[in-house]
């Protein structure tokens, strides 16, 4: 039952290849979180095909919304606002969620909230353990590698981002060259666990003090290692190469996060995004934050990968501020987090 003082947000997320809807109460309590993954369809192509993703979203969208309400055991009458990911992401995919949210808003007269996808990932942590500030968030996914400083709710300062491949993208590319299935992240993580990081691969630190990332050099050196080994006919374990790649990527992510936390003197770090599911990264960051005496939050796996509950959590901050979207809300593939572009 909904109490008068409760705020119910029905959230929708379709920025990539998951069609997702969720009901979140008061920004913290997940009443339902339904995700229809298209991964089996995209596996055939070795990656997400935007047109195929958009088609699946249209097929699924009302069904997923209906399931989210049913699981939460509420009706549209109980909903206070509709939240949706407006960007960044695949434009055609974003537009399905955006127009579903608009359709709901038009049918009910209730307000619309446009949410930044990365804000959603960060707020997945809020569903686990209430966010406290200031904090540093490391956001890692197929499309993002970012360090973000937050001094309060809903305010984001970008400290650094990737200059080439996102870390998840590097995982996918390396997985492909190693002949591992798509998606590459989980496959490499698993393989790395059975190998030793015996191969010396570079760490890309960039300029002194920079919080930016670069993974294309690491990716190339994995390719070179494979190529050279083939030419010389030398034997090596694929598991060792996977472990070495993961060791390099994780070390850079952990060290830069630790450095940012130190520079901004924050008591708390939160991990966000699909690559937060990577066990190597979780373990290394946990050990480092313990050593540095900072509180670390890592959401459970189902809240790390794309979902709508995280969008509902981030939307609550905007709801409280009256930050609503107009009927002309658009899908914005390149939407940036730290300013109002």
């Amino acid at each position: 039952m909904k109490k008068l003082e409760d705020t119910m947000i029905l959230a929708i997320e379709t920025s990539c290849d998951e069609t997702a809807a969720a009901v979140v109460k008061n920004g913290r309590e997940v009443l339902s979180n339904v995700v229809a993954s298209q991964i089996d369809s995209h596996k055939r192509f070795g990656g997400v095909v935007p047109e195929v993703a958009s088609r699946h979203h249209v097929e699924q969208i009302t069904l997923i919304i209906e399931e989210a309400l049913a699981e939460a055991d509420i009706t549209l009458d109980d909903v206070d606002a509709f939240a949706v990911t407006e960007g960044p992401g695949l434009v055609g995919a974003l537009l399905i969620g955006v127009h579903a949210a608009k359709g709901l808003s038009l049918a009910t007269g209730k307000p619309l909230i446009g949410v930044h996808h990365i804000a959603g990932h960060i707020y997945a942590n809020h569903l686990v353990d209430e966010l406290t500030f200031p904090l540093i968030s490391l956001v890692v996914s197929g499309g993002h590698t970012e360090l973000i400083y937050m001094k309060e709710h809903g305010v984001y300062e970008m400290l650094g981002e990737t200059r080439d491949d996102a870390v998840g993208e590097a995982y996918d590319k390396v997985a492909r060259t190693l002949g591992l299935p798509y998606p590459g992240g989980p496959a490499i993580d698993k393989l790395a666990a059975s190998g030793e990081p015996a191969i010396d691969l570079p760490r890309s630190w960039l300029e002194e003090g920079s919080f930016d990332f670069s993974f294309s050099g690491l990716k190339s050196s994995v390719l070179n290692t494979l190529h050279n080994a083939k030419q010389r006919g030398t034997e090596f374990e694929t598991a060792d190469l996977a472990a070495s790649f993961q060791a390099s990527a994780v070390e850079v992510l952990v060290e830069k996060t630790a450095a940012a936390a130190e520079a901004f003197d924050v008591p708390r770090v939160v991990l966000a995004g699909g690559v937060a599911a990577n066990s190597g990264l979780r373990d290394a960051l946990t050990r480092r934050m313990e050593k540095d005496g900072r509180k670390l939050t890592i959401p459970p796996l189902h809240l790390c990968t794309d979902n709508a509950a995280m969008i509902g959590a981030a939307a609550m901050v905007q709801y409280n501020r009256g930050d609503f979207a107009g009927d002309d809300l658009n899908g914005r593939p390149g939407l940036s987090l730290s300013n109002n572009d």
Partner: peptide
Amino acid sequence: TTAKTMAWA
């Protein structure tokens, strides 16, 4: 998408 969602709602 707009039509479907409105009709459903």
